[in-house]
Design a protein around this nucleic acid. Structure first.
Lengths: 349, 349
DNA sequence: TTGTACGCGTTATCAT
DNA sequence: ATGATAACGCGTACAA
């Protein structure tokens, strides 16, 4: 087991001082005679020398690393987000340390501490909603924070990247309304999150525009973890007046919701029209293929990283930025006009 | 923007020397008077002091970090693997730096260099197959390497964790044979990988045991990236004598394969019996639900991390270890006896 | 039991 | 244009 060469080894082998080697490595830090530069470079590649990140960080005070804090990577949404963040980051020469919270503020707090220890230059996170003061402290210590997918109301002046939640939910609802649905179920994330609230808002706005009464019992905000989606779907369909249309707007609950529909033998779209918020390609492999609101995860990742890196390099004006990217509605075969018998009000017609 | 307190600040505030603080932090490194210990701890929590990882690493020579090198996180197999690795690692106080290779040896090489710079204590990787000398150098520099899911023949003396590839493929094949299938298509990973070879081996072994002739044209080894799966399926079904059963044993190709089947309107299991190697829950949401070989990804992750950490702490005997975990066969509704008209040999019966 | 002083590898400052 | 040297923050022999 050899020992990796240090900058001193290079300097010695090249017959120069460490300063010269350092300047060769960081061109902007000072001049080097072309001759020596070549010589040093040659020795570097000869010895296979590489600067140790730890030493750099110690000296610089911060690392060329960003933390990515998400619920868990088993959720395709976060998996794809992570994939793009890692990929995008690499092209900028920065590494990504991934941490998962399971939506538990306590684990989140731990993660933040750890990232602080590592002096990461920035953090991209889907916050649980807790740890307000911790997030503040992090920012106060010079760590650039970007929230993705969700925001925290109590925390102002933070960059946020998300999809147009309200608009997306509204478009999905509009689509069902246009088909003639009046009782539309909504399964979404906790109302304690900005995302959940916005989507409920979009849903209500669509119904109001169509002068359809809003029945609160049709709106179910379920936790991100667990399979509350399936249960919500079950209880919605067990209603005296069940919905004829369903929107699953919590990506973490799509699988359990669809599974429940399959188990119950619900015929789609005959018994129920369905639209889900999508991050997974399999939505077109079911029968029928599901109409989806497609989230542009790549865009979320790119913008998030753009913001963190921009801040890290100080090439961004002060003041929080909020970026909302548009989500596409992809119509497939899971939506149709409601069965007349199910539409109570027009049953007499 | 404040500055984080250092060990010196703590020492000063507590009226002791830095070494006392250090010993409080690392209990095994020396004795501390109970009184002072309490005092120091109180100051630490007061100031919110946390040791800087960079300084530790620099001094220790290696970081409490492991690198995870996989193809990409968009593949549910790797996403779940990463999820478990990150989770498992956290409980041991180690962080995970994720890097993706897109199956490109060049990108892999870059990743290894980067991980080397970071002095990671270990690397868990699904190797592309190239960079033999680079892997060797890494190990030579004291980085503990564990290959997961695949091995590299040219690289001996490396820990490997994988599923029982040969056995799994054999069981899937046996299942179809038992149903009466004689022409069974196999879509698997590149024959240049240990995984691909083993699965082909299991497939052949099953056929040989049943005295069924092996038709090489039924075996398609396709790259991990891209959607070669769909094309392979298309060409298999376009054969003069198409298979009546199909095994998709390359998880990266399952989606494109199934998509193609759906597009072609193939009736499962009437026209074709299908078994896929599974990492995604949606395989039971298709119609019919697919019979799968379920890979115990959690076990792969746990064992991999166990090995790396064990080596890092030097509490593992020398000598490479190979761990194979059993995969379950989960029968669902995508397999049936072949249609008699399709079975050429018994058509006369 | 406690404190001092040095090393870890790099960058930045300041002479030369 | 180059070189010596002092940080950066922590661990740790070694001395007291």
């Amino acid at each position: 087991m050899k020992k990796a060469p240090t900058i001193r080894d290079v300097a010695a082998a090249a017959g120069v001082s460490v300063s010269v080697v350092s300047r060769v490595l960081n061109p902007d830090s000072g001049p080097v005679a072309p001759a020596k530069r070549e010589q040093v470079l040659s020795v570097i590649s000869d010895l296979g020398y590489r600067p140790r990140a730890a030493a750099r960080e110690l000296s610089a005070g911060h690392a060329l690393t960003v933390g990515l804090v998400v619920t868990d990577l088993a959720n395709p949404f976060f998996a794809q987000l992570a994939d793009r963040v890692v990929w995008e980051a690499r092209s900028h020469g920065v590494q990504v340390v991934v941490m998962t919270t399971q939506e538990d503020p306590h684990l989140e707090a731990e993660s933040l501490d750890t990232l602080l220890d590592r002096s990461v230059g920035g953090v991209i996170a889907t916050p649980t909603g807790g740890n307000i003061e911790k997030w503040d402290r992090l920012r106060d210590l010079g760590v650039n924070v970007v929230f993705v997918d969700r925001a925290i109301a109590e925390l102002g002046d933070v960059d946020v990247v998300s999809i147009e939640n309200s608009d997306s939910a509204r478009r999905a609802t509009d689509h069902l309304i246009a088909l003639g649905h009046e009782r539309i179920g909504l399964v979404t994330g906790p109302a304690s999150t900005s995302t959940g609230r916005s989507r409920i808002g979009g849903y209500r706005a669509a119904l109001e525009s169509a002068s359809i009464d809003i029945d609160p019992i049709l709106v179910r905000d379920v936790p991100f973890r667990g399979d509350g989606g399936g249960d919500a779907v079950g209880s919605l369909l067990a209603l005296p007046e069940p919905p004829t249309g369903l929107i699953v707007a919590n990506t973490a609950q799509v699988q359990s919701s669809v599974r429940r529909l399959v188990q119950m033998g619900v015929r789609i779209p005959d018994d129920l029209s369905v639209i889900v918020f999508d991050d997974n390609p399999w939505t077109e492999l079911t029968s029928p293929p599901l109409s989806v609101i497609r989230q542009p995860i790549g865009m979320l990742a790119v913008h998030s990283l753009e913001l963190v890196l921009g801040r890290m390099q100080g090439r961004l004006p002060a003041g929080a930025r909020t970026i909302e990217v548009k989500a596409d509605f992809v119509p497939r075969s899971s939506c149709a006009a409601p069965a007349r018998s199910a539409t109570s009000k027009s049953a007499t017609r």
